[in-house]
Design a protein around this nucleic acid. Structure first.
Lengths: 148, 148
DNA sequence: GGGCTGGGTTCACTTGACGAACTCACTCGA
DNA sequence: TCGAGTGAGTTCGTCAAGTGAACCCAGCCC
């Protein structure tokens, strides 16, 4: 077996796995940028939110951008970096599973569409030969072979 | 805007977002089934592990299956249900991001291959017209329209 | 009957989350 | 110029959760 302590899953969770982090990112993907909006929508304690935003900025997942609303002093808002945008599949995967197994009457699932053609979009495992796999059972995991 | 408190991402995280849960599932996908193995590989405190395994079973993500090793009394092991298997994309997404941004020298990334054709596999957003989207920017999110 | 083993439970301690109250810098209106 | 208002925090007492070590217990073996 291989070394699990440095597994990428554990690493990623160490960065974005704390409470509220992924919810902050979900909101960021939906266009939320300001502290007060994150706070109002999520209902997270301000202290925790401050902490999560700072770590996300430190990790290069969000960046702080100054802005000035008319009649207000300069403040800064939080925007996704490319590194943050690349977490999109994680959120889509979490959302998909929730839609599938946790939906209740009255819930309006969020639908993702291809901006270019308008068709609904789903997450899929695709192999380099172009096959779309039907599920986890078709996947074989192994450590990448390396020269020594 | 729509009601975020019942968002599927939040729902899914409420179920599998506690510390250690996703790591337990990662191991489950790699074939780990017994308490002692989870404990040894993850290094999680036994009390927490007991708790996480029970909630995962209660949620129908794992199921407890009795087994008996020769010369030992009957015990039970933990196996993924379909509901658990469907969390695969979440783990793949987390792993991919970690490989991309957190890899260090000496880390051996785990490679996923299509069992049928042997080609490497990646996660992709695919629209119903068959286009493979290049990134989150090509996605448009909106609440699904519903009759009222 | 005594030791071993897997799968836990208990307990004292530390870390983290929570909500309310307080702060600070700046703007606006009187 | 003064005072109220606002966004973005910080501080603080309290409570929940995670941690590691020690302990337990059923069944098997010798």
């Amino acid at each position: 077996m291989w070394d699990r302590s440095r597994c990428s899953v554990a690493g990623t969770l160490a960065v974005v796995g704390e409470k509220w982090s992924l919810l902050v990112l979900r909101e960021a993907f939906l266009g939320v940028r300001r502290f007060a909006d994150f706070q109002r929508i999520l209902g997270a304690p301000k202290a925790v939110l401050t902490d999560r935003l700072t770590t996300l900025v430190d990790q290069g997942i969000l960046r702080r951008v100054p802005y000035q609303a008319p009649g207000e002093r300069q403040r800064h808002e939080y925007r996704l970096t490319q590194k943050g945008i690349d977490l999109h599949p994680v959120l889509v995967a979490l959302m998909r599973w929730g839609d599938q197994y946790l939906a209740e009457d009255g819930d309006v699932p969020l639908e993702l569409r291809h901006r270019d053609c308008g068709e609904p979009v789903h997450l899929a495992l695709v192999c380099d030969a172009g096959h779309e796999l039907s599920g986890a059972r078709e996947v074989q995991a192994e450590p990448r072979v390396q020269a020594r």
